[in-house]
């Protein structure tokens, strides 16, 4: 039964959520709280901060995030394939057996091509 084995996990999730929250609230009992305008400044190695960080900027990691999502989904397909491989070996159709390798090849070539765009990374 799937649900029964997840009962402790649910309880664990509640405890895991309460643990950091409890820690943060517990520190209120011990720590001082004297904010000053100078303390609340953004840290920039002692200098007065220049502008804000949340600007529009071309972060080059976007391409990696895009490929990551695709690969995540592909990995799930491969996982299902790995589970089914023993059964697939007994089937007679070569399409069922080997078409996944075609998929792997296309994925691999496409990824390497996409990464060509971000050859030089600035930050």
């Amino acid at each position: 039964m799937v649900l029964e084995s997840y009962v402790p996990v649910v309880i664990f999730a509640v405890v895991a959520l309460l643990f950091p929250l409890g820690t943060f609230f517990a520190t209120r009992l011990f720590r001082p709280d004297h904010p000053t305008p100078l303390k609340d400044l953004t840290y920039e190695c002692g200098e007065v901060p220049e502008g804000v960080a949340q600007i529009q900027f071309h972060f080059q990691y976007y391409m990696f995030a895009l490929i990551f999502v695709i690969f995540d989904v592909a990995a799930i397909f491969l996982l299902l394939w790995a589970f089914a491989w023993g059964g697939l070996l007994n089937s007679v159709s070569p399409v069922a057996k080997f078409s996944i390798f075609l998929f792997l090849g296309i994925m691999f070539v496409a990824t390497q091509y996409a990464l060509k765009k971000e050859e030089v990374i600035q930050i």
Binding site: A26, T27, F30, R31, P32, D33, H34, P35, P37, K39, D40, L41, T42, Y43, P49, V52
Partner: peptide, 12 residues
Amino acid sequence: LLQKENITPRNA
């Protein structure tokens, strides 16, 4: 660390 002040930056 438990006794340290918790600072939230103004712009955060």
